[in-house]
């Protein structure tokens, strides 16, 4: 089973990389980009067979390591 975890900075946490990318996009002539937030994607290969159990385990992985929940949110996709 595969799991995909998206980790992004929480609203209100400054994202200097996102700001730099937004600036570069406008330099390239892409108008109308009002904001850019960067993040990370983790693709996990799991031996789990039960989706709910897998989700619970991945959630624990996020809480303990993959995200710093003080500054980051995470989102889990299973399957």
């Amino acid at each position: 089973m595969k799991a995909r975890v998206h980790v992004t900075l929480k609203t209100g946490v400054l994202d200097p990389q996102g700001k730099a990318i937004q600036h570069a996009l406008s330099q390239l002539g892409f108008d109308g980009v009002e904001g850019v937030r960067t993040g990370k994607v983790f693709e996990l290969e799991l031996t789990d067979t039960d989706q709910a159990a897998a989700r619970e385990r991945v959630q624990q992985m996020c809480e303990q390591l993959l995200a710093n929940t003080v500054i980051e949110n995470y989102d889990i996709e299973i399957g």
Binding site: L9, V13, L14, P16, Q17, A20, N68, V70, I71
Partner: peptide
Amino acid sequence: LPGGLLRNESL
């Protein structure tokens, strides 16, 4: 300790 340490504002 509480909080987080992010990339410097200037990058």
